[in-house]
Lab assay of single mutants.
Amino acid sequence: QAPETKIVDKSRVACDGGEGALGHPRVWLQIPEDTGWVECPYCDCKYVLKGSKADAL
């Protein structure tokens, strides 16, 4: 199944896999201003900063 994409309001987000005990260790991710998105290294969930150029795609 394809990784999930989430639109977020802040450039710093936490990801834990979203499945409680079945998820992964919580990691904090920083969305770079130049790209407007970041992917979780564990679950490949893509976080897109709302209003960024990546959000316009």
Rank of each mutant, 00 (worst) to 15 (best):
K46W: 05
C43T: 02
V13E: 07
G36I: 05
K10P: 05
L49I: 06
C45L: 15
V48Q: 03
E39Y: 15
A54E: 07
P25N: 07
G18N: 07
D44R: 15
I31E: 02
S11V: 11
V27I: 11
C45N: 15
C45T: 15
P41R: 03
Q1T: 13
G36C: 04
K6Q: 11
D34M: 05
E39V: 14
P32S: 07
S52E: 09
C40Q: 05
L22S: 11
L29F: 01
D16L: 07
H24T: 03
V13Y: 04
C40Y: 05
A54L: 06
D44Q: 15
R12F: 14
I7R: 09
C43W: 06
D34A: 09
L57Y: 11
G51T: 05
H24A: 05
S52A: 03
E33D: 07
Q30F: 13
K46R: 14
A21S: 10
C15H: 00
G51K: 00
E19Q: 09
C43R: 01
W28E: 03
E4M: 15
G23Q: 13
E19R: 11
P32G: 04
V48S: 00
A21F: 09
P41W: 06
G23N: 13
D44W: 14
K10T: 14
R12V: 14
C15W: 00
C15R: 00
Q30C: 10
A54K: 05
R26P: 10
G17H: 02
V8T: 06
P32D: 12
L57C: 09
D44E: 13
C40G: 05
Y42T: 07
E33A: 09
D16M: 06
S11N: 12
A54P: 05
W28Y: 10
W37A: 04
V27M: 04
E33R: 07
E33Y: 09
R12M: 13
S11H: 10
H24L: 02
E4Q: 14
I7F: 11
H24M: 02
W28V: 03
L49K: 08
S11C: 09
G20H: 07
A56W: 14
G18Q: 08
D55V: 00
I7G: 01
D44T: 15
G23I: 11
V27P: 05
Y42H: 09
G18K: 09
Q1I: 11
A2K: 13
E39A: 12
P32I: 07
L49G: 08
L49P: 08
I31F: 02
Y42P: 05
C15Y: 00
Y42S: 11
Q1A: 12
G17A: 04
G23K: 14
Y47A: 06
K46H: 06
P32V: 06
P41H: 04
C43G: 03
A2R: 14
W28N: 00
Q1E: 11
S52H: 04
V13P: 04
D44Y: 15
D9T: 14
A2L: 14
A21W: 05
K10H: 14
V8Q: 02
L49S: 05
G51A: 04
K50L: 08
V8S: 05
P41C: 07
P25C: 06
P3F: 12
P25I: 12
G36D: 02
D55K: 00
Y47H: 05
V38M: 06
V38S: 01
V13D: 03
V38T: 06
W37C: 01
K6H: 15
T5C: 15
P41L: 03
E39N: 11
R12D: 13
K46I: 14
